[in-house]
Design a protein around this nucleic acid. Structure first.
Lengths: 203, 203, 203, 203
DNA sequence: AATGAATGAGTGTTCATTCAT
DNA sequence: TATGAATGAACACTCATTCAT
């Protein structure tokens, strides 16, 4: 197995660290078979480690689920804030945010599917944490809409809150029908979803 | 057991039949604790029967889940078809369908939540059955949109299919945020969701 | 369904009585799937009756098993006694008994298989009854051998008891290898088994 | 836990490993109460372990049954081959094989009883495995008989196959009557069974 | 950092039997 | 005679987690 003689050793590519391997395996299995129907044994087998190793890095099976979604949420929040805080017009900023959330949701479609399916199995405290983070996200977007309504570029007789719930409902449901090997790219869907959102706000 | 004398006996109100009691108990518990984390024992205890009785009427725990959602789907399909096949203008018909699906979804919000959470745990055959039924539903609504696009009352540069997926995504996600004791009635949400849908199709 | 008017009614052939139908169904199912892995529901379904009907005629599932084998044992005992008590020479009588037990065992091969597999599941009292009846059977055959040994036509240095156990062991094991659609008829096997038995007793 | 001082510690005798304890307990209980009427709980209680431990080592209750008999079959096959392949005369080799199979069958009488009673409950694949192994065993013995028939030391007008079925039928039925505390030792029965087998082949 | 044997509480499901009708 | 809904105890099996090493 190990290099026998020669000075010049050809290194195997550094394997992914154990925690990453575990998260990747868990994501795939949870998406394929569901959180509850995937056993810790299956996860560690798929990751090529043992149970002891998993419990060394993660406190519980729940922790894996939490980490999977928390990662996505961090990424989405960072990207959304960058778009929302830019110097563009509010229409362009809202459109950018809308396209981006579709694209990143599709990029992490498994994580999103897993999450909306299984959030209710998480410990209430962790559920609350994620919900709070999601709420902050929604509120920033709602702020964008209200900003446009206040400045007259968006129609003001639409409830900004309801529009946000409507739009993100559609986005969070992507996992139920979007197929990566289907006819539309993530960006195409994002553009069209953004169109539909802006339709609803056109004066 | 039966009344002995001739005097007027006060009858206990006829209790709900066992299958209905089981479905009601299962719906409540699945919504509250999730499908996988609710045991058959909890269900039969809540329904006041024994496990044997449950397995007399339902083949499995899965069957309960299936029945819960199949019932809703039957109701929604019947109501949608009535609205879609009326003699009103296509705009009014589409609006009626949109309002109605929101109202019935909210009426059966628990069932809907349960279903989208747990569909993946159903036997593949049953999943396929439900999906097929859902697809027929969507297709009828898409037909309505295409009818309007063909007759020029809806803008034709929106993908009817994408609009359907967008709209029903938002509807199916209602369970994640709508609260019956909140500020908006189901009908109010339905009217506003219908507005947003028609915005997207206005020429 | 039943004839309404006409004098000349065409009768369906009288169906087998319920108890017989139950025993026949039970025999087939026990042989195919085993006693323990056949449910009472399967038996009554196969017999085209309901559970209540079965419990009307049989006290328990055990009773079916008992009846199945008791019937065979009665037949075998009657036939054996007829052959053993005839006026032929002892060699011819023993041979006739040997051939006959093979033939009747093959005729009722399912019952025999079921019985030796499942006797231990019977209530001890019923087990004892059957054992006693079997023992009487064996003893009558042993008597035949001892009669031949006493009269000098069979070699006396073979233990009659052991020969009986040896021979009937082979007979009772027929169910493990004999196939009705195989190359040998029951009678052929019987003749050869009889040969082998008499070989062992030849002076 | 470990010895603290330098003085001579008296070690408890190393306990049997868990898998062996489980097999021993299962054998005893299956023989006493039958396979189907022995619960896994009874087995693990008797072995002094928990269910989890059992399922750590054995895939199922079936597996225990399979292992019990597979072990015996391995032993019997090895011993038979040693006797059959020796340099003795074919008569002496066949006799040695016959005596030995009786002795080892009696030594493992419980396993044999269990097996012939319960083989039909095994998964078809495992049944096939065992049958195939048994068949190889029978065929080696049949080969021995045919060898003797070809060289003229056994009478050739007996079907070797039928003789094998006859003899092993008797052997496999030992469990129904042989008692270890009875008047005959296993070896005595073996010698007499061998006599009866050779009687049938004497020219 | 990592193992893997062992735990023990819990799961969905089966089934012979009873009994009011 | 016969029904079939209902019982209730039992069953094989699973699994997240622990812990001595």
């Amino acid at each position: 197995m190990s290099p026998e003689g020669g000075e010049q050793v050809v290194r195997e590519p550094e394997p992914e660290p154990v925690p990453q391997r575990l998260l990747a395996a868990a994501t795939r299995l949870f998406a394929e078979h569901g959180f509850e129907t995937t056993s810790v044994q299956q996860i560690v087998d798929a990751a090529g480690v043992t149970k002891g190793a998993m419990y060394h890095y993660f406190g519980s099976k729940d922790d894996l689920l939490y980490e999977i979604y928390a990662r996505v949420l961090r990424v989405q929040t960072a990207r959304m804030e960058q778009a929302a805080d830019s110097t563009e017009s509010v229409q362009r900023r809202l459109r950018a945010v809308a396209v981006d959330v579709v694209v990143t949701t599709v990029t992490h479609l498994e994580d999103t599917v897993i999450f909306f399916r299984s959030m209710h199995l998480l410990h209430p405290d962790k559920q609350a944490e994620v919900r709070a983070q999601r709420r902050r996200y929604h509120e920033r977007v709602r702020g964008l809409i209200e900003e446009g309504q206040a400045s007259g570029v968006f129609r003001a007789d639409r409830s900004a809150e309801l529009v946000v719930d409507f739009f993100f409902g559609a986005v969070h449901h992507l996992g139920f029908w979007y197929r990566r090997d289907g006819p539309m790219s993530a960006r195409q869907v994002g553009e069209q979803f953004a169109d539909l959102l802006l339709d609803a706000l056109r004066v």
